[in-house]
C-alpha cells in the first residue's frame, strides 16, 4: 500500500515497485485515463508504458511537468511551475476550499460578485 498526497487530497492505494498503480487508482488520483495510446485527459494523450493494467504514476506525473517527492511509501504529487504560472496568467483567482474553526467548508469562488480581500496570517 502507498499513500499519495495531492494538493487537496490523500489517497491510500495498492502500489507495487515504487508507485505502480492500477488504472482505476491513477484515474481517481489524477483524473487521467489509461488508454492504449497512453494516459489521456480529454483529447490529450501522453504516451506511457503500462503493464498488466498498471502504470508508474510517479513517472507519469513527472513526465507532464510536475514534481514528485516521496518518503518510504508516502508520495507527494506536486504541481509544476508551468501549471501554476498558467493558472495565474489569466488573473483568475485560483479557487480553493478550506474549513473554518467550526469545521465548515468555504469555497472562494462562492464569493463571486463581491470584492475579496484574501489575506494570510499565522499563529507563529
Amino acid at each position: 500500500m502507498a499513500t499519495i498526497l495531492t494538493q487537496t487530497n490523500e489517497y491510500t492505494v495498492d502500489a507495487a515497485a515504487g508507485l505502480q498503480v492500477t488504472a482505476a487508482d491513477a484515474f481517481a488520483v489524477t483524473g487521467w485515463t489509461l488508454k492504449p495510446e497512453g494516459m489521456c485527459l480529454g483529447d490529450l494523450c501522453v504516451p506511457m508504458p503500462s503493464a498488466g493494467g498498471r502504470i508508474d504514476l510517479a513517472a507519469f506525473w513527472q513526465k507532464i511537468g510536475n514534481p514528485v517527492v516521496s518518503e518510504g511509501d508516502v508520495w507527494s504529487l506536486g504541481v509544476g511551475a508551468d501549471a501554476r504560472r498558467d493558472g495565474l496568467a489569466g488573473l483568475d483567482a485560483p479557487d480553493f476550499e478550506l474549513q473554518d474553526l467550526a469545521g465548515q467548508t468555504h469555497r472562494l469562488s462562492s464569493l463571486r460578485g463581491k470584492k475579496v480581500f484574501l489575506s494570510s496570517w499565522a499563529s507563529w
Partner: peptide, 19 residues
C-alpha cells in the same frame, strides 16, 4: 495550500480579487 496557489511567501500578504 493558498501560499502555493498564489505564490505567497510571508504573512501578512494579501491578494485583492474583484467581483
Amino acid at each position: 495550500r493558498v501560499a502555493s496557489l498564489y505564490g505567497m511567501v510571508n504573512v501578512p500578504q494579501a491578494v485583492w480579487i474583484d467581483e
